Computed example of a mutant assay.
Amino acid sequence: MASRGRSNSLALAAAIGMAAGLCGLGVLSLIYQDTALQWEPVPASWPQHAVLGALSGLVLLGAGVMMAMSRYRALGAGIAGAFIGLWVLGLHLPKVVAHPADLTLWLAVAECAAMALGGFLLRREMLAGPGTLTDIELRLFGACCVMFGVSHFAYARFTAGMVPAWLPERLGLAYLTGAIHLGVGLALVAGIRRRWAATAEALMMTSFVLLVHLPRVAAKPGDRTELTLLFVAVTLTAAAWIVATSRTALKGR
């Protein structure tokens, strides 16, 4: 019973965390009348670009506010999943098809897909309980984690540059975190020790928020890029905790 209570508390915190991340992204889009930088790369040449940015901000903010309320949480999660899923299908995949060897484009797909899957999984867990489709969603989330790991190895020096200077062996930490991403992703895809794997991923991503993104925002509190990175990291971290506390993940062998 105590274990179930802790799991429920973590699940609630994950939902609130995703709500906070989405609200932050929505507020930024409303302030700047623009979409979410490289995660929502609407070309500046599109008509009514500022209007699209504001509408995007309203959708993200609205979804986040709904997710913060238990009565509308499933609806908000579904809206967030569907809207961010549109970024993957309409904005990122065409670029991947045109340039399939560009790893940065695949990483963008993985990050947006992971956020969308977090929303869909939360909605499904609340409305229908675990099932076959939920299992597929967990495997897809695992594939996203694999891509996170590959990017850590491919861009190890860039990743090391994000590690706080006071930590030792920054390049080694870049490789270590990449290996953890890979291990978690493969475990989720294979259905092996899913709870432990997803929890490790969620804890590691939480450390990214606390050790990397919050200090960078504190150093540059008005910097839009750093704020966007923080809110995306919060949303991704919340998605990882949603996976870690899902009932299907708990059944993983």
Rank of each mutant, 00 (worst) to 15 (best):
A165Q: 11
M1E: 10
E137A: 15
L236P: 11
S246N: 02
G81C: 12
S9G: 00
R124G: 08
W87I: 11
A15L: 08
K220I: 03
A11C: 00
A165V: 10
L22P: 12
G252M: 03
G178Q: 06
G149N: 00
G85E: 07
G90I: 13
G149V: 00
R195E: 06
K95R: 15
G76F: 05
R170I: 07
A19P: 08
A244S: 04
A50M: 10
S7W: 01
W166F: 12
Y32V: 09
L230H: 03
H92S: 06
R253K: 15
L236Q: 14
C145T: 07
A14L: 00
L60E: 09
A113G: 10
M204G: 07
I180W: 01
V234P: 14
Q33E: 04
H152A: 08
L12Q: 11
C145N: 13
G142T: 02
M205L: 15
G85N: 07
A165E: 14
M67I: 05
V184P: 05
L133H: 09
F148N: 05
I16W: 13
I79L: 01
L236A: 12
I180A: 00
R157H: 13
D223N: 09
P221N: 01
G53E: 09
V217D: 04
R193P: 07
I31A: 03
V184N: 02
S29E: 15
I192C: 11
T228E: 03
L86A: 07
F208V: 11
E201G: 07
P168Q: 09
R216I: 12
W166T: 11
L182T: 05
A63W: 02
D34N: 05
R216Q: 13
V65S: 06
A160M: 08
A190D: 02
G252F: 01
H213I: 06
Q38F: 15
V42M: 13
H152N: 09
E169P: 05
Q33H: 04
G129D: 11
L188Q: 03
L30F: 02
V97P: 02
H181A: 09
A77V: 10
T159N: 06
L127F: 05
L103H: 03
L167R: 06
V217E: 04
P41M: 10
G161H: 02
L55P: 09
L60R: 11
A200H: 01
P94N: 00
L186N: 04
L171Q: 10
